[in-house]
């Protein structure tokens, strides 16, 4: 028999309350229970980064956290990265322009990771960007367009900040 817990959390700004088997990792919970399939599972041993989501603003691997541990927390997934009005996050826009994605499977983890990284490091060097995505595997792009997209997004986000 599965041990079940009732949890309450906020996902992409919306309150969620439901039961979860305690053995579900957060990635399986988001995908299987909430139907948020934008979070992808690539390895389930914490090495590929595809499943990265933001937990209270921190980029973490959702396969390495139990869903019950998200109780009371704020979760942001790829589905919640754009503005509610549909305006893409500067990273999403830059990925489209710089061809920072091909198959799209690693992309949600890249975007969530970089969103957290750019918040803490708004003016990164290329080396810092590469370091930031060194825990995210991509087999399609060779990373270079992702790095270019991150630098482009960072520059635009700094400009927007400056305007404000």
């Amino acid at each position: 028999m599965d041990d079940i817990r009732h949890i309450a959390l906020t996902v992409n700004g919306q309150p969620v309350e439901c039961d979860t088997p305690v053995r579900l990792h957060l990635g399986d919970f988001l995908r299987g229970i909430l139907g948020l399939t934008g979070t992808h599972l690539g390895c389930e041993h914490g090495a590929c980064g595809a499943c990265t989501v933001l937990v209270d603003g921190e980029a973490v691997r959702s396969c390495l956290m139990l869903a019950v541990q998200a109780n009371g927390r704020q979760i942001t997934t790829i589905e919640g990265l754009a503005d509610p009005d549909g305006t893409l996050h500067p990273l999403q826009q830059a990925f489209a322009e710089k061809h920072g994605l091909q198959c799209g499977y690693c992309t949600p983890g890249m975007l969530t990771s970089l969103a957290a990284f750019l918040r803490d490091t708004p003016d990164p060097t290329e080396t810092q960007v590469r370091d930031a995505i060194s825990g995210n595997l991509c087999r399609c792009t060779g990373y270079q367009p992702i790095v270019e997209a991150a630098l482009l997004a960072a520059a635009r986000m700094r400009q927007t900040e400056g305007v404000r």
Binding site: R31, G35, L36, T37, G38, T39, H40, L41, T77, I78, E79, L81, A82, L88, Q92, F95, A96, E97, H99, L101, G104, Y105, T107, P108, L111
Partner: peptide, 21 residues
């Protein structure tokens, strides 16, 4: 040109086999 695939894939709206229920 910008890829036609990207708007879906960038916003978590791709549909891979394991996403189908």
């Amino acid at each position: 040109v910008q890829r036609l695939e990207d708007p879906r894939l960038l916003t978590g709206k791709g549909q891979y086999v394991d996403d189908i229920v």
